[in-house]
Amino acid sequence: MEIKSSNWVVKPVWILFKDLKSEMRNRYALNTIVMFALTTLTVVSFSIGGFSLNSRITSSLFWLVIFFSSMSGLAQVFVKEEESKTVNLLKLTASPGTVLVGKLLFNLVLLLVLEVVIVPLFIIWMNLSILNLPLFFAVLLLGSLGLVCSTTIIAAIISKSHIKGALLAVLSFPILLPLLIAGIDGTRLSLESHDFSAGFGDLGLLGSYVVVMFTASILLFDFVWNE
């Protein structure tokens, strides 16, 4: 007996489960982002050596590692479907909104896994002392959501192109600049101050960025997907 499941919240979760299962079997993105992250982190850590850096440079390096590592993996989410010719399966069976939210969820899980590896290592290797842990994690969470929202729609756009690498860099830089500026500043404040309210400005900016990017993605995705 079959059971109808028309809930639009549930369908993206099936896409998430499918992508997780595929990822666990072929490590298409996970190996790339974790290796890239570890390499970047090691290079940064060795090049700094015993020097003590100020909080602005440390937080810039922190977001630099997350940005480059995530770029190498998160953008693959649609490229993989195009290259394996499975994109038409999704088009035939699911609405564009379902696909977008499913892919967003997968990228979010992937980024959180990356951060579970990177953040403790960065803190230990860079000998970081975080004065305001709640602010640090709030900035990290909102920054991650923003990063996922923007890279997912960029991934959908570049997957249709023949010059994927070049287009990724060109599109990502201007779109992610406000997010990186707010993320770096919010992280710096969490290293310098015990006062959570000091980060309200950056948190507000990051929150707005997430809302704007998510809304823009939903509105744009139909055109990108069906082009």
Binding site: E2, K4, S5, S6, K11, W14, L90, T93, T98
Partner: peptide, 8 residues
Amino acid sequence: RIRGVIPA
């Protein structure tokens, strides 16, 4: 499932 049916 993504068509909206959990198959038996």
